[in-house]
Design a protein around this nucleic acid. Structure first.
Lengths: 219, 219
DNA sequence: CCCGAAGTCAAACGCCCGTATGACTCGTCC
DNA sequence: GGACGAGTCATACGGGCGTTTGACTTCGGG
């Protein structure tokens, strides 16, 4: 029914009718529009127009609006995280240094790399407000592994069993300590809090958060 | 055009055609349905049916869907916070005790009183994902005053100017440390984190968060 | 050169839903 | 008890949008 993603490598020179390119444009446009307006308010005509594709292309390539949304979400996610995968922490000797590494990486993802994909975060915020099946996959694919990784660091830091309630809770505190800058941005904006955008500012912010988190964890 | 809220006190015995009651039912139903489906996906026919009111009643009482949404949001907000207003903190001598009071109150609002209005939090989450004019009002009306109040406590706690960058940032950290249990609930749920529901559990949680926050603030 | 498949396109179908309308039915007051 | 206004109701209008269809165009291979 729906066309599968075309062959990975184009054998010939770019064709005038390039299915791969059309599909990609559609995906990019969809990510943008869905992020801006939400699933329901986004309309396919706009997405297609912006992608210089015909309305029918959605059905042809993806099968429908819902499927397009899902693909767009994962495509955006992949592009953002593929460039800089989560650092492995267990190898690191010093738990405090490991925590620092993780937090800096996470904040960099949230605050800087989003410039490359300004809509991934908004897609996520929308999923939080109205979870669809996509959120299940995202949590299982991204959040849970990150949590598990960080959990080991926290356990080492406070010298407790990685499976204990305390470690679990404190791990989540650290994650959301960072994540708030993403999730609560509309509120922070209205409170007049400027967003750190430059690598230097983000690094400084990470440093302050790290101090806060370290003290809290050890308390 | 739209009927104003009826007289505060009903002079006579409840009438068979009771405008006040109809309006209230509509408001309650709207809050529920908007929270469950979001502004766009909620439909007036469903809201009206659930409120045992006619479709035309929406226009009659509120003027339209958007206006109904706004009214429903504020009605829910008022009901949740009216019962237990934010504690005044400046009066308290010990900053640590003041922080404790504030955090306990805040968490109680988020985790317990929401049982009375299970949909206020979801309405808020939706506003975060897709801010409308309503979010401006909510921030100005609720979040900003709470922030200002807490800011004084934090300033006293770390012995700094209440208007300094440091105080501002740390205040936000504390707020969102609590707020995450509200905002990130869909994620926490999928991670298998149970929600504290009983007053005792919430109090215990508040205690742990307080330890974390105090240590972090003083770091 | 032709044929079939892959891709594109315009047009239309059909549904959902917010809004609008006008008639009907109560309660109340003169 | 008649009339007026508040409240209720069924019905219809109109637009937006996802989906579907079928014909047209381009390309590669026999």
């Amino acid at each position: 029914m729906t066309r599968p993603p075309p062959e990975p490598a184009p054998r010939t020179a770019p064709r005038r009718r390039d299915a791969r390119a059309t599909r990609a444009r559609l995906l990019a446009s969809a990510g943008e529009v869905f992020a801006q307006h939400g699933f329901r308010d986004a309309n396919l005509r706009q997405i297609c127009a912006h992608a210089r594709a015909n309305l029918g292309a959605v059905r042809y390539y993806f099968g429908g609006k819902q499927a397009l949304y899902r693909e767009a979400f994962f495509a955006a996610y992949r592009e953002v995280f593929a460039g800089e995968p989560m650092p492995r922490l267990a190898d690191d000797d010093d738990p405090a240094a490991a925590l620092s590494t993780w937090m800096r990486w996470f904040l960099r993802m949230l605050l800087i790399r989003r410039a490359a994909h300004p809509y991934l975060s908004r897609l996520l915020a929308r999923e939080l407000a109205q979870p669809s099946e996509v959120l299940d996959e995202i949590v299982a694919l991204v959040v849970a592994p990150a949590r598990d990784e960080l959990e080991r660091v926290v356990a080492a830091l406070i010298d407790a069993d990685a499976r204990s309630r305390e470690v679990e809770e404190k791990t989540h505190l650290v994650i959301f300590l960072c994540l708030q800058f993403e999730m609560a941005q509309p509120v922070l904006e209205r409170l007049g809090v400027p967003r750190s955008r430059t690598p230097e500012a983000v690094d400084a912010l990470a440093g302050r958060l790290l101090r806060f988190a370290l003290a809290g964890l050890r308390a």
